[in-house]
Nucleic acid binder design. Sequence first.
DNA 1: GATTTTTTGATTTACGTACATCAGAATTGG
DNA 2: CCAATTCTGATGTACGTAAATCAAAAAATC
Lengths: 341, 341
Amino acid sequence: MRPTVHDIAAAAGVSLATVDRVLNQRPGVRHVTREKVEAAIRELGYIRDVAAANLAKGRTYSLVFILPASDNSFMYGLNAEIRQAILRSPAERTDIRTIEVPAFDPAALVSVLEELSREKPCGIAMVATDAPEVRAIVDRLVRAGFPIVTLVSDLTGSLRHHYAGVDNIAAGRTAARLLGRFLGPRKGEIAVLAGSMLVRDHRERLEGFTSVMAEEFPDLTILPVLEGRDDPEIAHMLVADALSRNAGIIGVYSLGAGNRGLIRALKEKAVDRTLTVIAHELTAHTRAALLDHTIDAILNQDAGHEVRSAVRVLKAKADGLAVIEAQERIRLDIFLKDNLP
Amino acid sequence: MRPTVHDIAAAAGVSLATVDRVLNQRPGVRHVTREKVEAAIRELGYIRDVAAANLAKGRTYSLVFILPASDNSFMYGLNAEIRQAILRSPAERTDIRTIEVPAFDPAALVSVLEELSREKPCGIAMVATDAPEVRAIVDRLVRAGFPIVTLVSDLTGSLRHHYAGVDNIAAGRTAARLLGRFLGPRKGEIAVLAGSMLVRDHRERLEGFTSVMAEEFPDLTILPVLEGRDDPEIAHMLVADALSRNAGIIGVYSLGAGNRGLIRALKEKAVDRTLTVIAHELTAHTRAALLDHTIDAILNQDAGHEVRSAVRVLKAKADGLAVIEAQERIRLDIFLKDNLP
DNA sequence: GATTTTTTGATTTACGTACATCAGAATTGG
DNA sequence: CCAATTCTGATGTACGTAAATCAAAAAATC
């Protein structure tokens, strides 16, 4: 049987009330007494029964998800997963709410965080916009005791407790190696379609991609990046244009959203040539394209896993508990047509 | 506020005791009364507070993991993950125990299951050996109300509640496509190293592998399977022999364990030729081989995820709760040297 | 209609923790 | 040494559910 507060009280030779004061860091305990109790806790290996504690407190974890107001299909999926989490709320003692902020707008994000600091939720998950002022307020909130995790897009160098997202540099590197290996000995040019070079994830993917390409696949030349702004129409235009203009293109890496446009362009312009294509994010469109061989591989991050992980980590941090690191690591999924879920 | 048993009692116009009798399917409630209570439960959307219930019951979930007594590094890792789960037991109200049975021995497995049926654990996770008599007793236990999940190796056609493992046919198909694409236009022969064709996982991987090879990569010929019995020494011998004998080998697929021997053979015999190699299971050895380019890709199943998933599913089934399907799906991880964890 | 059986109600205790109150003890300051 | 202050103990209630007991009511049986 695991020890209870009663056992601690008996072992430390104090009353239940004193144990309670120590456990919940309430005032009114002399230093020596507190040490006695803490020693007993350590010796007996006492672990607070979180379920019972939450029951007694009537606690619910109020969590806030801050998301950019961009309507690409990845964010759409992320939203859907949060709604799923909200449906599970009663069973998980959570009370989840989302706040939309304009995308790429550090000031807006900062002001939302300011407001939250007054409201005192139990935890905050945010798709970070990488800016010094955001880092500053995140650090301030963390120091003030708020559990904070970044979601999908990290805030490196900040004090955030956890990052629930993939390593985008590794994703870019993986894309490069896959593309390089799939193309084998062929020489030629690679078109890269990104959303915007202002977005950190995209910059990082490109960085990883170019470095592996340069190191290991010198026969492949990367063309200037096409910035499709995650918009299918623009993506279509840019890719179609590049393909008609340049007959030397033998591979495409799409590291952002707007793949619907990419796929259309490929079907129009590339039926006759063997193009190797790698794209990010598994959606209905990319899945179909993978199955009909328009795309050769899809790199994906599981939004459901990211949301569930963020919730678990925030709850654990709110209770001062440890997380299972391996469980919270978001993997880079590589999908070929054979291992689709 | 979510409704409690008190609210149900008030709404149904019965006493707390009656609600309890209905909720815990105790006798002594007239049919009409039971219906009244059930209606109230539905109308108010009552969900039992599992944490409070477990507290009241003093419940711990006694779970049994049945594992084959084979000491390859995957099973070793699986064991380690179970030990981790045991360490978490106090916080998770679980009481986990493992039972080793001789590998590939249906009779032994059946007798262990027979015994467990008397002991009445809350749930059983088992690495299944695929045999009719095993299926029969699993079905009997499921019908008797035991939650049962298969782990790593499934028992198709049985009534087991869940399978915590990868789709091995998809794994084989994925391996074939990766190998085929990596080899590009080259023609040649492929060596396949398996543990034993008596193991279902291995048979399925091979099945997936050969079918994609036949369909899509006709220039690649699969040589007769080398059965290394998951033993590094035997694997080394078989692969070294095959490589010296056959100069036409340009690719290797290792779908079982014993990769240490494979890697040694590759380093001895294949330094001069460019061989493309795909192996299963990420271990210290395969990881090193991936990093030094001896192996080109590793397919992996995350034993930690499998164990945690099995525990979650068994607990949920024991309580008659739903599981989050997407969370319990075990993915086939594809590791290149760039996305290693 | 009396008797037996079944069904229901009322009440209590328990699980492990949180939190509040009040009295009493120990410590400190003057 | 007394008063003021700081600590500690004892006790009770609460959270939502389980489970047991015993009495009372209702239904079924004869």
